[in-house]
Nucleic acid binder design. Structure first.
Lengths: 108, 108
DNA sequence: GCAATACTTTACCGTGTGGTTAAGAGTCAG
DNA sequence: CTGACTCTTAACCACACGGTAAAGTATTGC
């Protein structure tokens, strides 16, 4: 039932505008579409599309209140994405540690 | 210098074939392109493109050894992606906890 | 040298993304 | 009822993605 969605979630995260929106929603629990649009120099239709992408990924729920569109974050798919990453983290860490000596000169 | 790359990394993660490849490389430190292709019913050019995407994202390094292309995982960009997620994790967690009672019947 | 192996590159195709402008739809204020 | 406000939808564009088949490039084995 809760089919993967990982594709959509990672795809949604691949755009800086959408990451900024998610970051905004992490700070303020609910924002209107206009408020989410404001920091970005972009037309409203573009914003609306980004919201649609976030909604399809299950990251966002939109509800009309009067003439405002209230957007709020649904963090569960983000947790799924983080889980996918941490599921393999042990292996990376081992390798990162192994590389540390090797790379220490490149990363002061 | 280590310019964001987050876009490319998340975009790379948005495809199940590429996630499977990364998972394979997390288990086995280095594999040939052919070995990476084998589990997927897909032509080699398609595989080659996926490898190129992973390479552009900085997740993969390819080196020729004889007529084999040796692929190995570079986990650092993955760690950056995980960092982005965990940077906001606190907020999600609060909200997830708040939702827990509400959703507990749906997630046994 | 020749053929097989192991890929990669080059078109090509259909679909989706990220953006625009222009028009539409729903809601509140007077 | 009329506007003004807050978005969304529709139409369009250029470009990238994910796949294919066909041709090209190295490299190894005989």
């Amino acid at each position: 039932m809760v089919k993967s969605q990982l594709n959509e979630v990672f795809a949604a995260l691949a755009d800086p505008t959408r990451r900024a929106m998610l970051a905004d929603l992490a700070r303020v629990p609910s924002l209107t579409a206009g408020q989410l649009a404001e920091p970005h120099s972009m037309t409203l239709p573009a914003i609306s599309k980004h919201l649609a992408v976030l909604e399809r990924a299950g990251l966002l729920t939109r509800t009309r209140r009067g003439r405002h569109q209230i957007c709020s974050l649904n963090p569960r798919p983000l947790r799924e994405a983080a889980d996918w990453l941490s599921r393999h983290e042990r292996f990376w860490t081992e390798r990162v540690d192994a590389l540390h000596d090797y790379l220490v000169k490149e990363t002061p």
